[in-house]
């Protein structure tokens, strides 16, 4: 049953996305793209872009988007509920423990230990996104023909702009969208 599958998948995403935001990305990719094929890698990248430009957490945005596409509004509700449930249980439990004992040293310790792993997994997800952007088919290949040269340039310029001038990511992505519209229209490619 699709509602249950969506619920369980996003329950899993909600339970293991520690640190919020980008940390959720590798889990969503694993569940939604790799495992269930509910979205393609292109659609996943679009959801991340949309999430950046709209308010709200990536997890809730992805749950709503995926749910609606797979099973309409009830699907979106099932996925969003799944996403929230682990938070509900764990936050309330921690709040209770905090009231009782104060201090959260062990929790903080575990979080510190997780930080390198979280960075590594965001990096792995980033690698998939770079591959998607710089190869025409979205698959790695040694053939120079397979490289999406405008994509390579957009990526390089965008990264440089972000690193050097610390521009707002929303502006950078919108700029890439505008550049894509102009360059790809002129080349008549895709």
């Amino acid at each position: 049953m699709i509602y249950l599958e969506l619920f369980v998948s996003f329950l899993y995403i909600g339970l293991f996305s520690i640190g919020g935001g980008y940390a959720t990305m590798p889990l969503i990719q694993e569940q939604v793209v790799d495992l269930h094929h509910w979205l393609t890698m292109e659609e996943f990248a679009d959801v991340i872009a949309i999430s950046q430009m709209t308010p709200g957490p990536i997890a809730i945005n992805s749950a709503t988007f995926t749910g609606i596409r797979i099973a309409g509004i009830p699907g979106a509700a099932a996925a969003t509920l799944g996403c929230i449930l682990p938070s509900l249980v764990i936050v309330l439990l921690l709040a209770f423990l905090y009231d009782r004992y104060q201090g959260l040293d062990i929790v903080q310790g575990i979080l510190n230990g997780l930080k390198p792993a979280v960075i590594a997994m965001i990096a792995a997800s980033g690698l998939s996104l770079v591959t998607l952007a710089v190869f025409q088919s979205g698959q790695p290949s040694a053939d120079p023909e397979a490289i999406d040269w405008p994509g390579v340039v957009f990526f390089a310029v965008a990264l440089f702009t972000l690193r050097k001038w610390k521009k707002d990511p929303i502006l950078v992505m919108a700029g890439c969208g505008a550049a894509g519209l102009i360059v790809y229209s002129l080349l008549g490619s895709l």
Binding site: L129, L132, T161, L181, Y184
Partner: peptide, 8 residues
């Protein structure tokens, strides 16, 4: 175009 931006 935006996919390159997201990757960056």
């Amino acid at each position: 175009g935006m996919q390159a931006g997201v990757a960056a």
